[in-house]
Simulated scan of single mutants.
Amino acid sequence: MSFDIAKNIGLQLFPLSNFNSREIANLYAEIWRDGPYSEVWTEDTAHQAVSSMGDNLLVATFDDAIIGFIAGFPFIQSLESHPDFFCATPAIQQLGLDVKKIDYLAELAVMHSYRGLGYGASLLQSYVDYVIDKGCEGVLLRTHASNRNPALPLYKNFGFTYLVDQTGKRITTEVNHPRLGNIPEIDHRPFHLLKL
């Protein structure tokens, strides 16, 4: 995946292969340990997660500092590693969309010290522009179920809506991930869809 980012804010994107993947894995772990997520990541599990995305993971920099990353790929491809995502397929088709023309936004993260400055919105807009150019009909993503998720307002402002079944129930998948503190380890993550 490769796309242009808004030049007026000085943000640049580079493929993971341009960086030391261990360094990026440490930042990945830091982001998801931080704030409302409180996930437990070891250096090895973070490196495995980052490496599995390969150059689908783009690293965002500003003034030569790494400020975050974004990763996406065709939804069909995500079904290979996440068979539990098949639960979203009927709802996508019910909306008249071709599942083969849906992109899955797997990761969008900005380092804590750069949040609230518009970088997340710039990353997301660039990604949406890219998938539109690819001919996609929609973008699917999952969020942490916590209402403390700082990305929810961003996704809502972009037009993402909860993906629901025929009864109006939100479609979710369960993620069992070790957490810090008193946060439950099982997270029911809802899908959100942006129709393009």
Rank of each mutant, 00 (worst) to 15 (best):
T167A: 10
V99M: 03
D133Q: 15
L27N: 03
P90Q: 04
H144L: 14
K100S: 06
G159Q: 02
L196C: 11
S17N: 10
P150I: 04
S81M: 13
D34M: 03
E23D: 12
G135Y: 08
L180D: 05
L108R: 00
D187S: 09
F75P: 04
D98S: 12
F19K: 04
Y155C: 06
G120S: 02
L108C: 03
F14E: 15
D44Q: 15
I92P: 01
E174A: 15
D34F: 00
F160C: 00
L57D: 05
N8L: 11
P83V: 11
N149A: 09
G138P: 01
F69L: 03
A91K: 06
L79R: 07
R115S: 08
D129T: 01
M111K: 14
K195Q: 09
L180I: 13
L117Q: 07
I70C: 10
Y28V: 07
V131K: 02
R179A: 07
L27V: 03
Q166N: 11
Y114F: 11
L194E: 05
Y127F: 13
P178R: 14
L58K: 06
E80W: 05
T172N: 10
D103S: 13
T172K: 11
S21Y: 12
A46Y: 02
A145G: 13
P36I: 09
T89Y: 00
N18C: 01
H112A: 14
D34K: 07
A65F: 12
I76L: 12
K156G: 11
F191E: 06
L11W: 01
T172G: 05
L180Q: 08
D55E: 14
S81W: 08
Y130M: 09
A49K: 10
G72T: 09
L108W: 00
Q48K: 15
T89F: 02
G10N: 10
D44E: 15
G181Y: 09
W41S: 03
I92K: 04
K7M: 06
A49F: 15
E185I: 11
I67T: 08
G68M: 12
T61H: 12
I132F: 08
L57V: 04
G54K: 06
F19D: 01
E107V: 05
D133C: 14
